[in-house]
């Protein structure tokens, strides 16, 4: 039980509403928190940043600078091709199509 309660359940809409308008978090951090992606890791990162010198921080900002507004999200096409060439994935998606067998549902 402790294991269950120790870690917050990710992807809860209530949390998102809270993180979304918390301006102390950047949009990326808010999402990471929402997804429940290892919070410990993020904290570690912050510590590291404090230890490190000025230069690394510039590099990090540069990373953010390089990203532009996109309408097409970025995909790793090799991973996508692997994912969608398996039969299970296609069958799992079939419920979203009109060719699905409605009798079984």
């Amino acid at each position: 039980a402790k294991m269950l309660h120790g870690k917050r359940q990710p992807y809860r809409a209530v949390d998102l509403a809270r993180f979304m308008y918390d301006n102390s978090l950047s949009a990326k951090e808010a999402l990471q928190k929402w997804r429940g992606e290892d919070e410990e890791e993020i904290e570690e990162d912050i510590e590291k940043e404090e230890d490190d010198t000025f230069f690394r921080r510039v590099g990090k900002e540069g990373d953010d600078d390089a990203s532009e507004d996109r309408y097409i999200p970025k995909f790793d096409y090799e991973a996508l091709a692997r994912k969608w060439s398996t039969k299970d994935a296609i069958e799992a998606l079939r419920t979203k199509f009109s060719t699905a067998n409605l009798v079984d549902e």
């Binding site: 097409i72 995909f75 096409y77 996508l80 979203k96």
Partner: peptide, 15 residues
């Protein structure tokens, strides 16, 4: 062509 189709499937699966 295949990438576009894969992208479409991925977007559909996002719901």
């Amino acid at each position: 062509g295949a990438r576009c189709a894969y992208q479409l499937l991925e977007l559909i699966s996002q719901g």
